[in-house]
Amino acid sequence: MTEEEHIRHAGPLTYRGRAIPQTTTDQRLLDQRGPTDWVHTDPWRVLRIQSEFVEGFGLLSELPSAVSVFGSARVTPDSDHYALGVTVGTRLARAGYATITGGGPGMMEAANKGAQEAGGMSVGLGIELPFEQTLNPYIDVGMTFRYFFVRKTMFVKYAQAFVVLPGGFGTLDELFEAVTLVQTNKVTRFPVVLVGREFWGGLYEWIESRLLENGLISPADTELLQLTDDPDEVVDIIRKSHLDIAQRNGEVPPGVG
Rank of each mutant, 00 (worst) to 15 (best):
Glu117Gly: 02
Ser122His: 01
Arg94Trp: 06
Leu129Asn: 08
Thr144Val: 01
Gly103Ser: 06
Met154Ser: 11
Pro137Trp: 15
Phe145Tyr: 15
Lys113Arg: 15
Met121Val: 15
Pro137Arg: 13
Tyr97Met: 01
Ala115Val: 12
Val156Asp: 03
Met108Asp: 14
Pro130Lys: 03
Met107Trp: 12
Leu125Ile: 10
Leu129Thr: 06
Ile127Thr: 00
Ile100Leu: 13
Gly104His: 00
Gly102Leu: 01
Val123Met: 11
Pro105Arg: 04
Lys152Tyr: 04
Met107Glu: 09
Tyr158Asp: 15
Gly124Gln: 00
Asn112Ile: 06
Phe131Met: 07
Leu92His: 11
Arg146Ile: 12
Gly106Ser: 10
Gln116Tyr: 07
Pro130Asp: 05
Ala111Phe: 13
Thr153Val: 02
Thr101Ile: 09
Gly104Tyr: 02
Ile127Val: 07
Ile139Asn: 15
Gly96Lys: 02
Leu125Pro: 10
Leu92Gln: 07
Ala93Asp: 01
Met154Leu: 12
Ala98Pro: 00
Pro105Val: 07
Asn112Phe: 06
Gly114Asn: 10
Met154Lys: 12
Ala115Tyr: 05
Ile100Trp: 14
Tyr158His: 13
Gly119Arg: 02
Ala111Gly: 09
Leu135Asp: 00
Met108Pro: 13
Ala95Gly: 12
Arg151Tyr: 03
Lys152Val: 04
Ile139Val: 15
Arg94Leu: 08
Ser122Lys: 07
Met107Thr: 10
Ala98Asp: 10
Gly126His: 13
Val123Ala: 08
Met121Gln: 15
Gly102Pro: 04
Lys113Pro: 05
Arg146Leu: 10
